[in-house]
Design a protein around this nucleic acid. Structure first.
Length: 585
RNA sequence: GGUCCCGUGGUGCAGUUUGGAGUGCACGCCGGCCUGUCAAGCCGGAGGUCGCGGGUUCAAAUCCCGUCGGGACCGCCA
């Protein structure tokens, strides 16, 4: 193929959405897609020409056979629209392009769904024709916002001395954490690479390698079930800094996020408050509290220390107050009870506060006057309110009420502003495994809190109370990301492995290369990673990260456009030394 | 692994509760008319395996079972 010689005239001189009164009289050439057209017989037609910047009305001879989504080049003269025909709803509505020459660059079949935004189209249809969907304003806006955020983050990290390093996509599988995606090796049949769940170990190796401050906008892959805020593949700002404390890392990341928010919204967010994990769990029933609204969990255990009511003879009783919730019907309350049970509670006690302040509840007759007044006082319940109580072990109470709180009070994604929050002092361990060994909450390289190191020698209960130097960034109830100060000394690491029930041999097999690296001079280091998909979704006012991803997967992990995943042929399997088993019965 | 919701011309929806002829609305599409529209207007037209399979019934978009696809959530996601 020979290239077409460079045209003496540019294909286009201007963007559709950028023409205004200052362009009147200019000869312009515009390229784009045909949007709506209004035809008035063979002598006059109005064509809305669209590119990613917007729409401009072109006045053409009606004999042109232009259809929706044709790709055209239109040349003409910008002119002021005649008196009374301007369109205030259009950014370019004061002008139009007249005396048009039209060139059809590509004809097009009618689109499978309208490109204008007047109706919501089924997401499956949108994904099957994503290339059409991407033309729509919403996707253009979201993807460009995402690019802006990426760019701001890069700028902020580099300003702070971080160096962008790329780490491999084909790595060794480590048994910890989420399910790996694996890639069969051709040169070593029977062996597999894993795709990285995160560049965690590599960034720590970078610290040993003297990189000092590493960052990467990194693709991460986890083979776990998909959700509105989870895809198989997602993108994180991944960062690690040598000789840095928790507070310094928090500062670095806060700065990067603030830069992203400012680039996206024009407003720089204020200081980000911190909350301990313990407070978050007790007050919000979640380690990612949505602090845009109240309805906090209120401790009621003390009110029922001597209760006669069996259901409240529990480790923990907490309640939430739903302002104005007394209007809920019996059916709605039954639905809430069902939800509470689905979330793991044995039941849900509801109480309505009547206009006279009396408690209306199926269990009121089992409670003493003191207990009833204690509930009202602790929750500051007022007439018209609904109060929901759960009694169980502390974990369950927090979990169930935390979810009910969200179900009943959570504002839509685009309301209530951006409420960032650092959750700090996470526990080092979370429960125990089948062998009675504590389970690391973050990962086994997480540094214990300096004030709690003495507890490492203590009882199993003491161990559960050890705090770590791990911290999460939360916004509006979304976990944006997490990080920690890492253990960089072999002796402490051995001790933690010992507590976790990981033998020396096992540790060497799983993480030998990292432990070996640490023997050659490891700086103290700490890091963080946060999800860019989630940040962009929140900034775009989207409930779902698929709306900020150009080509996302569906909840069942498929791509309706390419139909991935697909079988591969026998020859390909053969080369990899693989055989596919028949599906399980 | 589990719970719940959805699936009706190209698109969005109504119809399903209480079974009775593929019935209806809006957009789009095709053709005609139309020289200032902008969600152009007017006239005419085409377009359907009611996701798929089975069952109940004289009769199923509608009821039942299964299945596929999409979505929300619990579990899972160090």
């Amino acid at each position: 193929m020979t290239e077409t010689p460079t045209s003496p005239q540019p294909m286009r001189t201007d963007m559709c959405g950028e023409l205004d009164m200052s362009d009147v009289g200019r000869e312009v050439s515009l390229c784009g897609w045909v949007g709506r057209r209004r035809e008035h017989g063979e002598h006059l037609a109005f064509i809305d020409l669209r590119d990613h910047t917007g729409v401009i009305q072109c006045v053409v001879d009606g004999a042109h056979d232009l259809r929706s989504e044709f790709v055209v080049r239109i040349s003409g003269t910008v002119r002021h629209r005649p008196e009374g025909t301007t369109n205030a709803n259009l950014a370019t509505g004061e002008v139009e392009v007249g005396d048009c020459t039209v060139e059809v660059l590509s004809a097009a079949e009618p689109p499978p769904f309208p490109v204008d935004e007047r109706i919501d189209t089924d997401e499956g249809v949108r994904l099957r024709h994503r290339y059409v969907d991407l033309r729509r304003d919403r996707m253009q806006r979201n993807l460009r916002l995402r690019a802006t955020v990426n760019s701001a983050i890069r700028g902020a990290m580099e300003e702070q001395g971080f160096v962008e390093i790329e780490t491999p996509m084909l790595i060794a599988s480590t048994p910890e954490g989420a399910r790996d995606f694996v890639v069969p090796s051709r040169l070593k049949p029977g062996s597999f690479y894993a795709l990285p769940q995160s560049p965690q170990l590599f960034k720590q190796l970078c610290m040993v390698g003297g990189i000092d401050r590493y960052y990467q906008i990194a693709r991460c892959l986890r083979d776990e079930d998909l959700r509105a805020d989870r895809q198989f593949e997602f993108v994180q700002l991944d960062a690690e800094a040598s000789f840095a404390s928790q507070d310094e890392v928090i500062e670095f990341i806060t700065h990067a996020v603030a830069a992203a928010v400012e680039a996206a919204t024009g407003e720089r967010p204020g200081d980000v408050p911190q909350m301990t994990w313990h407070d978050a769990m007790e007050r919000f029933g979640s380690d990612k509290p949505d602090i845009r609204f109240g309805m906090e969990l209120v401790e009621l255990t003390a009110v029922f220390v001597a209760t006669e009511f069996n259901a409240f003879k529990a480790d923990c009783v907490k309640g939430i107050r739903v302002p104005g919730g007394a209007e809920r019907t019996r059916k709605q309350l039954d639905d809430l009870t069902d939800a509470a049970k689905r979330y793991g509670a044995k039941g849900l006690v509801w109480m309505k506060v009547d206009a006279d302040g009396a408690i209306n509840s199926p269990v009121a007759k089992f409670l003493s006057e003191d207990e009833l007044s204690g509930i009202v006082a602790a929750l500051e319940a007022e007439p018209g309110d609904l109060v929901l109580l759960v009694a169980d072990d502390r974990r369950t109470v927090r979990h169930v009420l935390g979810l009910l709180r969200l179900e009943l009070g959570r504002p839509p994604v685009n309301e209530g502003g951006l409420r960032f929050l650092w959750v700090v002092d996470f526990p080092l361990f979370e429960g125990v495994d089948d062998n009675g060994s504590p389970i690391p909450m973050h990962h086994p390289f997480t540094m214990p809190h300096p004030e709690d190191t003495h507890l490492l020698d203590g009882s199993p209960d003491d161990l559960q109370n050890v705090r770590s130097q791990a911290y999460d960034l939360v916004v509006n109830g979304w976990e944006l990301g997490s990080g920690s100060v890492r253990i960089h000394r072999g002796d402490l690491q051995q001790r933690i492995f010992g507590l976790l029930g990981i033998s020396e041999e096992e540790a060497r097999a799983k993480f030998g290369f990292l432990l070996e690296a640490f023997r050659y001079g490891a700086p103290p280091h700490a890091g963080f990673a946060f999800g860019i998909d989630r940040l962009v979704a929140i900034l775009a006012g989207e409930e779902n990260i698929r709306e900020v991803i150009a080509f996302p997967k569906t909840q069942s992990g498929g791509d309706p456009l390419t139909e991935a995943p697909t079988p591969i042929d026998a020859a390909q399997l053969d080369e990899l030394g693989l055989r596919v088993l028949p599906p399980k019965a």
